[in-house]
Design a protein around this nucleic acid. Structure first.
Lengths: 297, 297
DNA sequence: TTTACATATCTAATAATTAGATATATCTTA
DNA sequence: TAAGATATATCTAATTATTAGATATGTAAA
């Protein structure tokens, strides 16, 4: 790799000369002498082996090459400042990365809203997002694979805060046999059809299928469940917020169940390490709680 | 704007320490003394106000913050080198930008191929691409709005090289009335239908419609012409290479004309300023010629 | 012309960086 | 566990780069 010869300070000086319209003015702004500025620019041009600006009358004019390189150098200097800025944030304990594991049933729009609000405050903290299903969250907490988890269960030894209540609603494709009955649907009706359940991504083997039907399809993610049910291959309980679009598109239709059409679950927000939560994690957690509560109201 | 405090050299030194596994080894590689390296890193950490690495046993280990900042600093140093690299290219006369105006009938795939080949050789030269139609190219040459032009005409006073021959073929949508005749099409047939022509983007007012029909639609670009004809609203002569896909998709179909089904035009490659052609422009021109000739063969 | 304003360059002073020497710490091995 | 090998930390002196001050030079406006 080539080592740079020109220093940031030299580029910075060139920028000041252009921005303030001359060597003398730049010197003023930089709290340096005019000769110092002159020296820096001369040296810069010498190192690059080309003229960046020439004096025309009494003011400095950039050459074509100068324009291009000045432009790039601005980015360079800004980048350098940004690194130092991030160093400052890190020094204050801001994490470089937050790993967030979210139960699939948590409404995507809430999540996106929270992340959107977090972004300008994030101080360069990156988010690593993982979607999990049911006890998958528990595994992640135990293994320490995330700082923040949204899950329907709070494993032993962890502390969770209630985030939102999620409604799971029984749906099937509008053309599905269950929709052709023309009457309320009974448990007996359901038992004749294929029930699509989201099977567990974790190791513990909790299932979200509470009935004990013979025909069951287990799929690995909410997205798969939605696709399978949308294609007419079965029925299942899906989170209300996550299927609004499919309902409107007539890809899915609520099943008129006599009872149990709606099942609710509570999602909890859990810190993996409550003792040592970084400021960024705390901030993100606050936003998630805020968004969840605001949207519910 | 914040001025950076940490110098490129300090970042560079940190990188060397990590890359070569120690202060002493880094010093060796950098041709400096060990104490100098030690000083630089200590100062860096002092300026940032945090520890980037700590000595564990007898080798340096990065802190979490150190990992993140080192990573970013590598990019920074690489950027700095890249600017100097570009300065070198500019110094050798490589242009920062080439403006290329291309007649719409020039096959897109040829153009893309040439640009693709140019990219690794480009030495940071950016391409500004403009699509023009007919005499639009002449305007651009006269105004000096491009360095390189591909056009079917070589205006007075310019020098063009033959690039390729383009075949324009008469087409219409398969369902178009002209395709329902069940026989060869005559001029008389054509005169009853709407002729779609690409009208001139320039000021001179050359038209590519050679017939003198009553029904004419003038559209502003090849893309529009293709869309209009594909939608069944008329017929027209379009460049063979640019409608292959539409022919295969049965969006367009060749018209069985008794005569004049195929019209040809020659596209020329023209330097706006033959006296002072930069190396990048020359390189790109070579690639365009090469691609055009190879593909024709 | 003269004046005002701006850059270039010379020299001396100053500040930052470097090397050399040496102290200190850790791992290895006997 | 002590000696040897290897590595970083720190002190001081030397070196180098940068800066300011003074002055020369060049351009535009009055």
């Amino acid at each position: 790799m080539n080592t740079p010869r020109v220093s940031l300070d030299q580029w910075r000086t060139l920028q000041a000369v252009i921005d303030h319209g001359g060597y003398a003015q730049a010197a003023e702004k930089l709290h340096r002498s005019q000769s110092s500025v002159s020296y820096a620019v001369k040296r810069l041009q010498g190192q690059l082996g080309l003229k960046l600006l020439h004096i025309e009358g009494r003011n400095a004019v950039l050459s074509e090459a100068g324009k291009v390189l000045l432009q790039r150098s601005r980015q360079l200097v800004a980048d350098a400042s940004a690194i130092e800025q991030q160093a400052h944030h890190l020094e204050q304990g801001w994490e470089a990365e937050i790993r967030l594991a979210v139960e699939a049933a948590y409404p995507t729009q809430y999540l996106m809203q929270a992340l959107k609000q977090f972004e300008p405050l994030s101080k360069d903290t990156r988010i690593r997002l993982q979607e999990v299903v049911l006890s998958g969250a528990e595994d992640i907490l135990l293994k320490g694979d995330a700082e923040l988890v949204i899950s329907p269960y709070v494993p032993q030894g962890f502390l969770g805060e209630e985030l939102i209540q999620v409604n799971f609603i029984a749906v099937a494709h509008p053309e599905h046999a269950l929709h052709q009955l023309g009457r309320d649907i009974t448990t007996h009706d359901l038992n004749r059809e294929t029930h699509v359940i989201v099977s567990d991504s974790g190791s513990k083997g909790i299932d979200s299928g509470w009935l004990n039907e013979s025909h069951r399809w287990a799929v690995a993610s909410l997205e798969s469940a939605r696709k399978v049910i949308s294609s007419g291959l079965g029925y299942g309980w899906l989170p209300e917020k996550e299927i609004e679009q499919q309902i409107n598109n007539h890809e899915l239709k609520y099943l008129p169940l006599k009872e149990g059409q709606r099942r609710t679950g509570i999602l909890y927000l859990i810190y993996a390490n409550p003792d040592q939560v970084g400021p960024a994690t705390r901030q993100l957690a606050e936003l998630l709680k805020q968004v969840s509560h605001d949207m519910e109201a």
